[in-house]
Simulated scan of single mutants.
Amino acid sequence: MSKRMESLPAIERHNPAFSFNRISAMVLRYWYLLKGSWPRILELGYWPSMNLVMWGFLQTFLAQTTDVFAMAGDVLVGSVLLWELMFRGQLGFTISFFEEMWSRNFGHLMVSPLRPVEFVAALVGMSIIRTIIGMAPALLIAVWFFGFNLFELGIALVAFFANLVVFGWAIALVVTGIILRNGMGAESLAWAVPFIFVPLCGIYYPVSVMPGWLEAIALCLPPTYVFEGMRSILFDQVIDWQRLAFAAVLNVGFFAGGYIIFMAFLRSAKERGMLLSIGE
C-alpha cells in the first residue's frame, strides 16, 4: 500500500477527499471581500429593511381600518421576514458564486485542490453569514416599529429558518448550474427565479384559496409548510411538527437534485472548455 501511495503524484497524496481547511479558506476569502466593501454590507440589509418598512406600514394602515386586518397584521410582517430569509439565503449563495465569475477566477479554483463539494460547502457557509447580517436590521425594525418579534415563534423558528434557507440553496444550485452552462447572460435568473415561488408557496395567504391543481403544486414545495406553520402558530398557537418534518424531507430531495444539476452543468462546462471564459 505504501509503495502504491509513493507512486501517486504528490498533489494526490496530500489532497484529502474533503478538507475543512479548504472550505474555511474559501469562506475567509468571501468574508474579506464582504467586509472590505461598505456598499456590499449596506446592500445586505437595505432590501430586507425596505421591504419590511413598506409592508409593515401597509399592515399598520389596514390595522387601523378594521379589526380583521389587525388580527392578520403579525402574519403579514412575519411572512415578509420569512420570505426575506429564503430569498437572502439564496442570494447569499449565488452572489458569492458571482464573485468568482466577475473576477474570472472560477476556472482557477476548479484546477486547484479545491473540490466542487467543498466549494458548495463554502458558499453555504457564506450564505449563512450574509443572511444573518442582512436580516439583523429588518428584525430590529420589526420589533421597534411594528411590535413583532420573530423570535417569539420559539423553537419552531429554527425549523422555519432551516427549511427556508436550505430550499434557497437548492434554488441557488440550479441557478448557478444554469449560469455555468449558459454564461453570465443568465445572471438575472438569480433574482427572477425565487419570485416564481411567491404565488406558489402561500406566503401571504393560505394555500386553501388556490385552485385545486395549483394547491397540489404548492404542497410539493417545502416553503409552503413553513408559511402555513407560521400562520398556525400565530392564529392557533399550534406547532405542526409533522408538516415541518415533511418539509425537511422534501428539502433533502430538492437540495440533492440541485446539487446533481449543478455537478452536471459543471461537467458540461469543463468538457466544453468554458471555465476560463465564463465570466466574459
Rank of each mutant, 00 (worst) to 15 (best):
M1A: 05
M1N: 06
K3M: 07
M5K: 06
S7D: 12
P16L: 13
F20W: 12
V27L: 03
W31Y: 06
I41K: 09
Y46V: 13
P48C: 08
G56M: 11
F57H: 06
T60A: 13
T60F: 12
T60Y: 12
Q64L: 08
A70V: 03
A72C: 01
D74A: 00
V75E: 15
L76F: 13
L76P: 03
W83A: 01
W83R: 00
W83N: 12
R88Q: 06
G89W: 05
E99H: 13
E100Y: 10
V111L: 12
S112G: 07
F119W: 13
A121V: 00
A122F: 05
M126N: 14
S127A: 15
I128C: 11
I128F: 15
R130Y: 09
I133R: 07
A136G: 01
P137R: 04
A138V: 01
L140S: 03
V143C: 06
F148C: 11
N149K: 09
N149F: 08
A156T: 04
L157H: 03
F160K: 01
F160A: 12
V165Y: 08
F167Q: 04
W169R: 00
I178Y: 03
G183P: 13
S188Y: 11
V193K: 01
F195H: 09
F195W: 13
I203Y: 10
M210F: 14
E215R: 15
A218W: 04
Y225R: 00
F235G: 00
D240A: 05
D240Q: 08
A248C: 07
L250H: 06
G253H: 07
G253D: 11
A256L: 15
G258M: 14
I260E: 04
I260F: 14
M263I: 10
F265V: 04
R272H: 05
R272T: 07
M274P: 10
S277T: 15
